[in-house]
Simulated assay, not measured.
Amino acid sequence: MAKSKKLAKPIPNNGSSASAHPATSPSWLHDGLPLPRLIVLDLDYTLWPFYSDIHISTPIRLVSHSSPPTLADRNGEHFALYPDAPHILRLVSSLPHTRLAVASKSPVGDLCREVLKLLRLPPPADGASSERGAPKRTVDAFDAGLEIYEGTKLRHFEVIAKRTGIPFGQMLFFDDERPNLEVESLGVTMRLIRDGLTWEELEKGIMQWRANQGIE
């Protein structure tokens, strides 16, 4: 499929946290109902607003720790995650029974890993953290691993399931490309998104997963 999306510049920080945090604590976090054991994310136009293989010219470097943290490439272009994404990763990675993984068809896996290593997650929203030293790297949030290579997403999920032992039915996947709905043939719940990972899309995905599990 031809890649037609244009690079979306990082949204400037205007001092407001409205785009980074939900207005209230997410209801799904406190309603006592089950959550997926594994949340899997695509990268290009899901976690970040660019194609990793055509928009970035190496080498890359971290140029800003502000919100969102920003990278620059050889041509001086700036890159960042979608505004909500760092805060979502911070929250989900703190949940005791939900893990995170990546499933991406990007042909530049080493570059994607470097981006994830350079970008940092924000501190917990409540400011109460026992962490010391450097801020948490984005890559460290994905404790269930990174599957970044060309090929069908079915293969990505088969590898993830084998490595983690988590059943497909306990997985929730966020991706921006309709053909990847094929993973639902395995029992995975996929939330098809258009404008990147947001708090709203996260909640809709969780509700979709619960509905598929017969949870009300």
Rank of each mutant, 00 (worst) to 15 (best):
S57N: 09
N212C: 06
T164I: 03
S93P: 00
I56V: 10
R113L: 11
H156E: 09
L33V: 02
A101K: 05
T24L: 04
F79W: 08
T24V: 03
I60V: 04
S17Y: 09
P123G: 12
L41E: 03
F174W: 07
I56E: 02
V188P: 09
L154N: 12
P167M: 07
P96K: 09
W28Q: 00
N75H: 13
G165P: 00
F173V: 03
E201H: 04
L154S: 05
V63D: 05
K5M: 15
F79K: 08
I56H: 05
S93A: 06
T189C: 11
D42Y: 11
L118Q: 06
G205M: 07
V115T: 03
E201Q: 10
T138N: 01
H30R: 13
L181S: 15
D53V: 08
I206E: 01
E201W: 11
L154G: 10
K6E: 13
E158P: 04
N14C: 10
Y82S: 08
E147Y: 08
R163M: 09
H78C: 14
L29N: 03
D42R: 03
S57L: 06
R74D: 12
K153D: 13
A141T: 07
P22A: 08
R210H: 05
L192M: 13
I88F: 09
G15I: 00
P36I: 01
S27D: 12
G15A: 06
S16E: 10
